[in-house]
Design a protein around this nucleic acid. Structure first.
Lengths: 232, 232
DNA sequence: TTCGGATTGTTCGATATTTGACATTCCTGT
DNA sequence: ACAGGAATGTCAAATATCGAACAATCCGAA
């Protein structure tokens, strides 16, 4: 599992699980064990390319050690990261399931060890365990719902309204205060605005008593209220 | 099937299949027949609410006749539509699969007849047909890939770059010219900008020879080139 | 405790977008 | 052929955001 703050109630995980479909963890223990036991581990050096976007998928990856950055190379050669994944995290399952090319590049960030789970093995395990397949269906459906919700919430409106919707969403939309662990840069990236603009919007939401800003975290006093605010 | 222009090669469908997860059609014929045969049909009058966002799912819908608008009510009471679905279209499968509340409201637009496929029946059919479940997994994985790609492409950058990325994406990213059936207002909605801004971006892309504008359609001369353009 | 890197807070001129409006074109039904 | 509604093209003042920079705060490692 990645560095998710789970020791404290009310703290929600950061975004990496939303933007990078980590489906491996939705599988039952037995399926996970089976996949892991038959999969070879490879080592990568800092900056080494693991997989390229557009390539045909022959397997997916489970990170054993180190950090892998998942994202996309820009025309300028720069790498735009969507997620930073660590030990226990997985990526690349979607391409296997959809039988379509990979949509992301992946790079080692520092030395990394990555376990490759072959597509054929994955299909065999799924075929022999309908409960595993159903669990995967459920996890993917939930993620698709969240992604569509996120898409709907950030598409248009003033930055202020969009920030309200995003935070209400990330804080789970309920009526209890929730603290979201996220940097303002990440919020800015999600909304597609500059950090300065995101900061200004957050400052206004805080001034209105809807949120409290702290270092690398935002406390949402009433997530449902923020969602409503976003729809105005 | 909804009003998709399939008679002409190079014409891609509009967005409704992307923004509304119509998974029913990914099922094998036998599974579809089985679901349809046991499902009751209900009639709705113009403007009648069919389902409300946030409600627990007991089934999903297959449109028999008429038009259903799927989207979300704003705080002002206005309805923001995400998709307009017609005969043969389905919606609401995600909530069943994820076992989470519905994320959309749905309204009849004119008189409509809708077939309700119960969640329990759906689960039974899936459990008895692993091929159907695998097909659904694949369709959902593909859709999640597309949605994540869309999200990645529209999140930040100038409107011009984002429009380029979106069109490159919608046109399939290949090297052959493709015509995308879409209004400029729909492009604007997707990008979260006004129609005037979308039109200005499109005009510039056309001036640069990358696209050709026509009524309710955009021809993308080389989709792969537009995608690259978006990443600059 | 100190240091260094990351993150946040803020500012302001430059640039982009919105808004509201009007004109023109397109398409479909009668 | 005509009418009406939808879609597109365009414009300019008002408003929002970007970009670059600097200062302040936070946190983890030594």
């Amino acid at each position: 599992m990645s560095n998710i703050e789970q020791s404290e109630p009310g703290i929600t995980p950061p975004l990496r699980s939303l933007l990078s479909a980590m489906l491996f963890e939705a599988l039952p223990d037995s399926a996970r064990r089976q996949l892991r036991d038959h999969a070879p581990v490879q080592s990568f050096t800092d900056g080494q390319l693991i997989h390229q976007r557009g390539t045909a998928p022959d397997g997916f990856c489970l990170i054993e050690e180190g950090t892998v950055s998942v994202g996309q190379f820009l025309a300028s050669g720069e790498f735009r990261s969507v997620a930073l994944l660590g030990p226990g995290d997985s990526y690349g399952e979607l391409a296997i399931l959809s039988r379509r090319p990979r949509i992301v590049d992946s790079l080692a960030r520092g030395p990394a060890r990555v376990r490759f789970i072959g597509g054929a093995l994955f299909e065999r395990v799924l075929a022999s365990d309908p409960a595993a397949m159903r669990a995967l269906l459920g996890a993917m459906a939930a993620q698709l719902q969240e992604t569509l919700d996120l898409l709907a919430g950030i598409r248009s409106g003033t930055t202020l309204a969009r920030a309200a919707g995003l935070l209400g969403n990330l804080a789970g939309g309920g009526h209890q205060p929730r603290t979201v662990t996220i940097t303002q840069q990440e919020i800015a990236d999600l909304l597609g605005v500059t950090r300065a603009t995101a900061n200004a919007a957050l400052a206004r939401l805080e001034k209105n008593g809807l949120i409290a800003r702290s270092y690398r975290a935002i406390t949402v006093h009433e997530p449902a209220r923020l969602r409503i605010r976003a729809l105005e």
